[in-house]
Write a protein that binds this DNA or RNA. Structure first.
Lengths: 355, 355
DNA sequence: ACGCGCATTGCAATCGATTGCATGAATGGC
DNA sequence: GCCATTCATGCAATCGATTGCAATGCGCGT
């Protein structure tokens, strides 16, 4: 007797295993095994039950399954955001990363719970695992709280983090070679004859700090020292990047190269440079970081440091699943990192000024 | 007796309510009520238990809670992808939308399960609800399967879709006014003296079809008819956009305006136009759609049709929660849609040719 | 001193599945 | 034709919480 369902309301009761069992004239155990594809069930019973299930739109309640079986097929992907700047989903890099993780998880039969948390309380993410909702965590970025991440890992929380390799690190990271990335950019810009460099990015974040270190160390080897005034600490936001760049141009009219720690910042910087009448790359060379999809279609096409995002997503998922299998945690995986040179930093039609 | 935990392994058993009850010297019922903030529990018992819970990193197992209480605090956000083109996360618009949804859901105490599905089997998303994992669904885009969405809604599935208002629609949509958007672009381009227009986008998708209709209808009112050769059916992918644009330029050298159905396509088109030596906007005006963050920082800054993404995210969540409360479903909400004119289509320094 | 009411707390059933073990039917060996 | 196997299925306990109802203890009025 199918009672008339309330018009459009959620009044309809969902069918459950016992109902299907009744329909099939078997016990719930049999239905459970049949749908799980157990070898204990005869071929025709299984077929009959599966057909019935499809007919009635029945799907096993995975909440109950998870509870009983104890295995979870959901992974928490955590995107921190800074309270102050509301910075978070702004950067296209993040977008690519989430897509890569979604792919990797889906392929392996896992679901993805996407969660935003305050970047100052990374450890709040632990509630997703403590509360039994997810089997493990993937955190995008270390932000300013290496210590919190270490504490979580020491507590035995299955955790993989996108970011930089750091001293005394207890958790597993996957990331690019930021030191190398910075160095490559420095060498490239030097080879183009640039001398007055600017660095754009928040060096309070480990990855950015390493990019800066690689950059400035390589410059120093060539006799160029980067002072504090050649560096603007800006969050990964287009508008801040543009504003900082405008200030820097006014303060240092001689600048002839900019290394931005993300493509978004690089594009914003280019926008600002144009406002001040600088030509790219003739007057100023600009290099970004990440090689997001749009970088190639920007004008001028953006030189940038490429990190293999898809491979990164896969690596993070693999490391996490290994952790969940109880394998010993890898400390850090460093992915291939290389410079992609496009128009925004190519050639220097302008004569290099004597120093 | 805390057994020594296997080094870094997942061997550690999670604490549960009964354990905490033992520690506090009360029953599990009391712990449950105390943590839920029930008025039945005395103030000091509650405080004692809550302190204890914090001390031991105890978090109520929400899988068990959901099962028993029947209320779910998780919403499925579904991002379809086209098998053929692997198109999905590519468009920055999507990125903004996911961010807006994450914000809206988090604010209201819901979690977000992000799921990718085949755009040809939108109804596969129903498994998230049928399987009890999520309370309802938010689908981004109607793609080519209005019928599947109707069937899901008729089945009583709590569902809200981002997209266009369509005839005989049984489900709730939230979206911009695509017809108006298309018309605004047409009128703007005409006002700039443009006459040879090109439309870029996959008109197999309802939203794009409406943008095209608004665009071509407005043109027709001004005596301009858009033939099939003035329209390229391309997916939302940068590389396809660029390639189609190159072909169009070669086939129709006289073109002086391009309306792309997404900012990503517009940027790719600009990139292609430049390759062929066309100046933007002097030779060709380009207008995009969405007003993604980068549009303003592109070169030249991109004219585009703006849809309020954050408001859209909030609206979708509100409609879905209303559905879950059993309220009568709204059929469609159409958001404010307006043209943002920037450099890419501004002015026409070139003398308008006599017709 | 007794009974009543109120404020707390515990017992036990329940949510919807999974799974070890027991059971019953069919088959095969001798 | 009877017992030992094998195969398929059912019973009942269980996962970790929530919640209606019963029980306890206490204060207080009379």
């Amino acid at each position: 007797m199918s009672r008339p369902k309330a018009p459009g309301a959620a009044g309809r009761k969902r069918m459950q295993m016992a109902d299907l069992a009744r329909l099939a004239g078997v016990s719930a155990s049999t239905v459970s095994r049949a749908l799980a594809g157990s070898a204990l069930i005869s071929e025709d019973t299984r077929a009959r039950i599966q057909t019935l299930a499809r007919q009635f739109n029945y799907t096993v309640n995975s909440v109950a399954t998870d509870l009983r079986s104890g295995v979870k097929r959901t992974i928490g992907v955590v995107v921190p955001y800074e309270q102050a700047t509301r910075q978070s989903f702004a950067d296209p890099f993040l977008h690519g990363m989430i897509g890569a993780l979604a792919d990797a998880l889906t392929e392996r039969g896992y679901e993805m719970l996407l969660s935003r948390i305050d970047a100052d309380r990374l450890d709040a993410a632990a509630a997703l695992v403590d509360g039994g909702r997810t089997a493990g965590l993937i955190l995008i970025g270390q932000w300013r709280h290496h210590d919190q991440l270490n504490a979580m890992a020491e507590r035995g929380l299955p955790l993989v983090v996108w970011g930089a390799r750091l001293p005394r690190q207890q958790y597993c990271t996957v990331g690019g070679d930021n030191l190398l990335g910075g160095r490559l950019v420095a060498e490239h810009l030097l080879a183009q004859g640039r001398r007055h460099m600017i660095f754009l990015g928040d060096t309070g974040l480990p990855e950015v700090a390493q990019r800066f270190r690689g950059f400035s160390q390589a410059l120093k080897q060539h006799g160029i020292t980067l002072g504090g005034e050649q560096r603007a600490v800006v969050p990964f936001l287009a508008e801040s990047g543009r504003q900082s760049m405008l200030d820097l141009i006014d303060a240092q009219p001689a600048l002839d190269a900019v290394f931005a720690s993300s493509d978004l910042l690089a594009m914003a910087a280019i926008s600002a440079l144009r406002e001040r009448g600088r030509r790219i790359p003739e007057d100023v060379a600009v290099v970004g970081y990440d090689d997001v999809e749009l970088a190639a279609h920007f004008h001028p096409p953006l030189s940038t440091v490429r990190q293999p995002i898809a491979a990164g997503g896969t690596a993070m998922v693999e490391h996490l699943l290994a952790l969940l299998r109880g394998e010993a945690p890898a400390r850090a995986e460093v992915l291939e990192t290389r410079l992609v040179v496009r128009e925004s930093s190519r050639a220097t039609p302008r004569v290099v000024k004597a120093r």
